[in-house]
Amino acid sequence: MENLFANASIDPSTLPKAEEVEWIPLNKKYLPVSLLSTWIFGLVLAGIFLTVNFVNEGIFKENWKMLAVLGGLVFLFIIITVVSVLGFKHKAYAIREHDILYKSGLIFRKTIALPFNRVQHSEINQGPIERNFDLAQLEIFTAGGSQSDLTIPGLLNDEAQRIKTFVMEKTAKHE
């Protein structure tokens, strides 16, 4: 492999390789819990639709039209489910000495790397359903805009706290 630039004092190919890191998968509970939230959302959506239709005495007077809408909704949620199930095993994170990595995506595989000395702050979020299963989501922010932030879902609450403390300690060292 040719070098990236001329007259280098170091050889980039000898640097630590982000692609050879050992990935830690998300907690196994994350998949059922995220599916549960998706389905509850789907049921609420279907419920709203049926209620509105009932109150207005049928915007969709014929049964087949109503069934078509409901069928479409079911189809959409089946696709979301399939993608979540297949995509789950591609979601993982890794912590190295100087940065944190997260990968995701079924069709578009994406890996994002965030150096600790660029972290602005971090947050732990828990939805109502996640809280019942002791899961949490860790969000780490940089100054590069929302796209450059790193979000790791499906962590046990303790684990999320531990990573957050670790990241903040690493960040503080640089200030």
């Binding site: 994406k110 150096p115 660029r118």
Partner: peptide, 14 residues
């Protein structure tokens, strides 16, 4: 001055 780096691949690119 870089804040973070993302690398992504579509199925075709993979």
């Amino acid at each position: 001055k870089v804040q973070s780096i993302a690398l992504d691949q579509s199925i075709y690119q993979r």
